[in-house]
Design a binder for these strands. Sequence first.
RNA 1: GGCCCCUUCGUCUAGCGGUUCAGGACACUUGGUUCUCAUCCAAGAGAUCGCGGGUUCGAAUCCCGCAGGGGUCACCA
Length: 483
Amino acid sequence: MSIRTRFAPSPTGFLHVGGIRTALFGWLLARQNGGQFVLRIEDTDKVREVEGSEQHIIESLKWLGLDWDEGPDKGGDHHPYRQSERLGIYKEWGQKLIDSGRAYADPYTPAQLEEFRNKAKQEKRPFLFRDHRPESPPAWDGSQPLRFKSEPKAYQWHDEVMGQLSTGPEVVDDFILIKSDGYPTYNFAHIVDDQLMGITHVIRSQEFLSSTPKFLNLYDALGIEWPKFATLPFVMGPDGKKKLSKRDGAKDILDYRREGYLPEALVSFLATLGWNDGTTQEVFTRDELIQKFKLDHVQKSGARFDEQRLLWMNGQIIRGMSIDELYEKIEQSDKGYWGHGRDADADYKKAVLGLVQDRLKFFAELDQLSEPFFAEPDENSVKELLISPPDKHLKGVPAEELSRILESVISKLEQSDFSEDDIRNRLNELLAELDTKPGVLFPVIRIAITGKSSSPEIFGTLRLLGKDKSLASLHRASALLDS
RNA sequence: GGCCCCUUCGUCUAGCGGUUCAGGACACUUGGUUCUCAUCCAAGAGAUCGCGGGUUCGAAUCCCGCAGGGGUCACCA
């Protein structure tokens, strides 16, 4: 039988890395077995719904390359894929349960319920709704909540990640199937839909673990065979204590796109957050993941989300690309990353990439790193950096000395054909002639031509800037020192 | 509070009874790559495997307690 998994977010805002990882694992499982991945929107809570969420979720998944075979935007054999469009189905299934004596109308008001709860609390015993089952419940007319009539028993089941699990009958209680507004609860709707949609593996995060026995009781009442369960541990926030949440500042996954992270990096990072293939491999391509991913290698404990590691992984992938690949990626993502170089010539931009690739960790840094190649150095920065240099080699070198060095550089480079080799040779000559250290000469040149205290290596930078611009900048710096 | 889950370097993890006084990666420190930042390469520091009992010739690995953390007990998902 072919594997079918689903990702079933509720449209209550954006997706963060936690949600994406759940989607990713389901997607991987489906793809590696030639199965299907279904996207279902669980929009049964009209109060919490946030407009535009569905589109946002779809965009996030698409960006990461997690494609689905059936979903609200593309249909499928089990449509519709929005729960709000399936209300008739839930009603029908609710009726089935009433008919078989496994559901009843809940006659209590919220105030009455509250009273039951308080009383239980005072008596220091757990509250169970089934202790208050009405003797002769009213006929269900849709205005009352429809409740599941549970048959408490101890359960034992297998979880693909957590292993063997068990609980006693005390956790199985009567819960609401359909709310008084006519919408089903998650507890009911997901079971009906998973069944109807032929979902074979229910992959979800840990907060549902303790509800599972209730679900099992409902599967049994409906005569449905249990699917396989895979419960994923939480992705923890930076403090390592609590699960990552929007409340505590978890970022929208599309923020990473904005900052110029690569989907390949996010996918690899998220997959290895709580999973590994047992080797020392750290970065995986999508295809490798599809091939190697195993649910039983998933960690049981929560993993902290470490943005440092993501940054490193993104840099790794950027460095692994050819210049043409890198160029295309940036063009496709957002030309705005170029900033000052937005309108420059493609070949020139590629040459710039050749120099900055090694220090580029995410695309949003590109403007800052590449600025010297597109804009004249800022005079104030040049002045500042030469007169009170943070550079340890330059510290204490008198202005007259710097001025003298700059003039020698100018006269030396005026004779150069500005090939990289020639520049190197001539500057090496100059080092010998002036009896200065590279630690002094090179920073002076760097500051003069870039206005920055750090930049790519000096010979390549000079070559790419070209003779005219380089000399002009050197002249300007020299004049600044003299003034 | 009841129930359930979890517990190896700061972080992500390898490890599934012996070849491990615990291996890799991120981060950190130091050195090298004519200069900076970065990359790359080396090296270094960093975990008495939550604690206490067992079982065993032998335990991070099996069993039992305890502690700590988390989750859940909604007409939210």
